[in-house]
Amino acid sequence: MSALPQWSDLRVVLALSRAGTLSAAAERLGVDQTTVGRRLAALERALDGRLFLRERGALTPTALGEEAVARAEQMEAAMAALEAAASASGAAVAGRVRITAVPILVNQLIVPRLAALLSHFPGLEVDANADSRNLSLSRRETDIALRFARPESGSGLCRRIGALAFSVYAPRGTEPDGLRWVTYDDRFLHLPQARWVAANVSPDRLARLRINDAEGLVQAVRGGLGRGVLPDFMATRDPALARVSAAPVLQRDLWLLVHPDLRQLPRVGAVMDWLAGLPARLEAEAAEAPLSPGS
């Protein structure tokens, strides 16, 4: 066998397979019929075998020809993917991207870490919408959604990007065993934090306060009204709080959603990649500045 065939040679194989005749393949390739015949003959010599048989004026691939066509189609797909990647990487990440999540994720997870993303992409603008409602991707109420619960249905692309840990916290400097428990009101018993407290704490140990918002719960614990189950990504960095459980008591999965039509936009892809990296960034932050349980 001579030198291995090049992509330009395999393009001729594809054209002959799809066109069926030398003249039609030449028209597809924008060259004359003689050139196509010469390229085919050279390739058959290089491979030491026939690629096409002529039957009633049409070309039919041999077994070797079918293998060559399959390989050519694979290379064609790879080249197309490479061109698309090059185009995307060269496109400017610029324009507005709307993110929606529950308030604690927007206010305590996303916004405090957003400066690095905006600094890296000067043309990018972000709308960070703190909203407890599940805004619709299909109705284009948002571009990207970050949620604790995996949606049961919908038209968006969805993937799990990690999990966030929750532990028990109390005001720093207090004796936690003497504190009652602050938790959510009965409308929010579907939340894993509320369910954990309901399953592990006697009703007579609950504080005389009920909360309907995660950030309100944090403020209640900071204010000395009791201890509570709080997200580590927020509470471990708060000097007014101390973790009093030896380890996290629960974890909540984090799901990233986007409309399929928007995923290929460079600005949306850049924001999605950044959001997907947040759980790993939280682990790095914890390693950089570990805090001991208690005060």
Rank of each mutant, 00 (worst) to 15 (best):
M1W: 01
L4F: 14
D9Q: 06
L16T: 04
R18Q: 15
G20R: 12
L22H: 09
L29V: 09
L29I: 02
G30Q: 04
T35S: 04
E44D: 12
L47Q: 02
A58P: 02
L59F: 11
E66C: 13
E67T: 09
E76H: 11
A78N: 06
A80R: 14
L82V: 00
S89C: 06
R96H: 11
V106F: 11
V111H: 02
L117D: 03
H120I: 02
F121I: 07
P122R: 01
V126G: 06
L135H: 09
S136Y: 05
S136Q: 09
R140D: 14
R147K: 15
F148L: 00
F148S: 01
A149R: 12
E152T: 03
C158E: 15
R160S: 14
I161N: 00
F166H: 07
A170M: 14
R172P: 07
R180M: 12
D186F: 01
R187P: 05
L191T: 00
V197I: 10
A198C: 04
A199W: 02
S202D: 10
A207E: 01
V218T: 09
Q219V: 01
A220C: 10
G228T: 04
T236G: 02
R237Y: 13
A240W: 02
A242T: 14
Q251S: 12
L256E: 03
V258P: 04
P260M: 08
Q264H: 13
P266R: 07
M272Y: 03
D273H: 12
W274E: 13
G277N: 13
L282H: 02
A284M: 08
A284S: 11
A286I: 01
A287D: 03
P290Y: 15
L291E: 15
G294F: 08
G294D: 09
